[in-house]
Simulated assay, not measured.
Amino acid sequence: MYNPTVARLTYRALLGRRRAAILFILPALLIVIAAAVRAFSGADDQVATDVLGGFAMATMVPLIGVIAGTGAIGPEIDDGSIVYLLAKPVKRPTIIITKLFVAVGVTMAFSAVPTFIAGMILNGNGQQIAVAYTVAALVASIAYAAIFLLLGTITRHAVVVGLVYALVWETVFGNLVAGARTLSVQQWSLSLAEKIATPGAISSDVGLPLGIVLLAGVTAAATWYAGQKLRTLKLAGEE
């Protein structure tokens, strides 16, 4: 279910000069913010939680997921170059699984690593906050990559739809509207962070068992449906 050639081509597309520059912006901004906050306010657990929860988890991780998830397959479908890949003797579910692995890896690298660095800068992992948010970023990366990879297979406007979801649903509704929080990848991931951190340091509107079930379920469903959508793409000679 994993094809090294497909993975290599996908990594090359995702980490091209222009896309890689975009991927570096948000992590760099998070670290700069963390350093500035630490310089002005010193080590403060509540401030660390506010920065990592309000910027890293609510904004940076989903946006990087949009870039990596949609970029893993969307451009190939948009410009028609996907036909060259589909013409190869590679099963279509294998293509999806491979691209998901790549998207997850890129999302994790550009979200979890800077989250940990920022957490250590902010409070030196006091109350296990840095580690807790890093784990949350890791598991959120998997779900976001699967969701946005699916978007890349079902619409030519995947980036726009993904940005609306990331900025409106996850950032605004996921933080401000109580009922919507239970349907937020951010909150599902924070259920793990809440368990890891010192009691009371981090809170989530979703319990840990439900959070794990929802993360696994959404990831599996999105991956399966993306594979089904790719099956429906027909090459000219297949009609």
Rank of each mutant, 00 (worst) to 15 (best):
V83D: 10
V83S: 12
V104M: 14
S111Y: 09
V66I: 08
F101E: 05
V66K: 05
G124P: 01
I117K: 02
A118T: 10
I77F: 02
A103E: 07
S81H: 09
I96W: 01
I97R: 10
L100C: 12
G65E: 02
K99T: 08
V106C: 13
V66C: 10
S81D: 09
G80F: 00
E76N: 09
G105E: 09
T107K: 05
N123K: 00
L122K: 13
A72Y: 03
E76T: 08
V106F: 09
A118G: 15
K91V: 10
M108D: 10
A109G: 15
G119Q: 04
F116E: 04
I82E: 01
Y84H: 13
F110Q: 01
V66T: 07
T94F: 04
T94D: 15
E76I: 06
I97L: 11
I77P: 03
T59P: 06
S111G: 15
M57E: 12
L85I: 13
I96S: 02
A118S: 15
V113N: 09
G105P: 12
V83R: 05
Y84T: 06
K99A: 10
I117P: 02
G74C: 13
A56F: 03
D78K: 13
G69Y: 03
P89Y: 03
P62T: 05
I121Y: 00
K99P: 08
G71F: 06
L85S: 12
I67L: 04
A118W: 02
A103Q: 09
T115C: 14
T94G: 15
K99M: 10
T107G: 10
I77D: 03
A112D: 10
D78N: 13
R92A: 13
A56Q: 06
D79Y: 00
L86W: 05
